[in-house]
Design a protein around this nucleic acid. Structure first.
Lengths: 123, 123
DNA sequence: ATTATACGAAACCATTTGGTTTCATGTCAA
DNA sequence: TTGACATGAAACCAAATGGTTTCGTATAAT
């Protein structure tokens, strides 16, 4: 039921580094295509195409505001990825891997917490 | 440090459904190329190429045994994926998403448990 | 020694991908 | 109303992708 033969699934969508950067960028704010494009060395049209692929995978939502099209992150489809990963976690019984995973998650949490604080203050 | 500009990173490697099926197949057992190929509708050569891509991403290890080449799962690079995902879990504070995530993980755990049991009995 | 098996390398092919430039259209501002 | 801005559509292109078939070579079996 997760992926009903969408043309672009989550796995495909996040395979491209540009699209992963797009997701990160849209995590905090809703942004217009032009503003987003300024962050990338490629053309606005190219960015627009990536955004559509992300939208087809359900990872971003678009909203028309006047002549702008604004995008924001929609993280729910990542659940499918999480679910897929969970199958392999049982093979991580290697102690070193578990430790590495733990440490990296801690680092990541701290950083994310700071990001959220920053985001909350903007509202 | 995670991905030192490998030609094929984890994100790219798991983007293809055939390669995801390969990983699942190799989770339980070490298998030879021919035996693996029998599980797929494509040629042995095509499967072999997919296996090399997975190997380049570090997701499988190969071992020569006589004239055979056997592959097995190497799950550690998936940590990078887990780490990447952890950043977005922060945005799952939507209650429905959390619930969905919880339920699906429970289902998956049960299934994994059954698989593991089956695997243990084979040994 | 000969034959069969397991595999990778190579050449090839169609389709997809990620990018471009150009053009048309809708919306905002003067 | 006239012009500037924001965007998507379309046509195009080179390279990557996912597949094939053919062939060579190493190993195992008879």
């Amino acid at each position: 039921m997760a992926a009903l033969s969408q043309k672009h699934d989550v796995f495909h969508a996040i395979a491209d580094p540009t699209r992963r950067k797009l997701l990160k960028l849209l995590a905090d704010e809703e942004l217009s295509v032009t503003v987003i494009s300024e962050q990338f060395p490629i053309s606005r049209t190219a960015v627009s195409k990536h955004l559509r692929i992300l939208a087809e995978a359900g990872l971003v939502k678009e909203r028309k505001v006047g002549r702008e099209t604004r995008y924001r992150l929609e993280p729910t489809p990542l659940i499918e990825l999480k679910q897929w990963l969970s199958f392999y976690e049982r093979f991580w019984d290697n102690k070193l891997a578990m430790l590495k995973h733990y440490v990296e998650n801690e680092e990541m949490s701290q950083w994310s917490r700071a990001e959220r604080k920053e985001n909350d203050e903007k509202k």
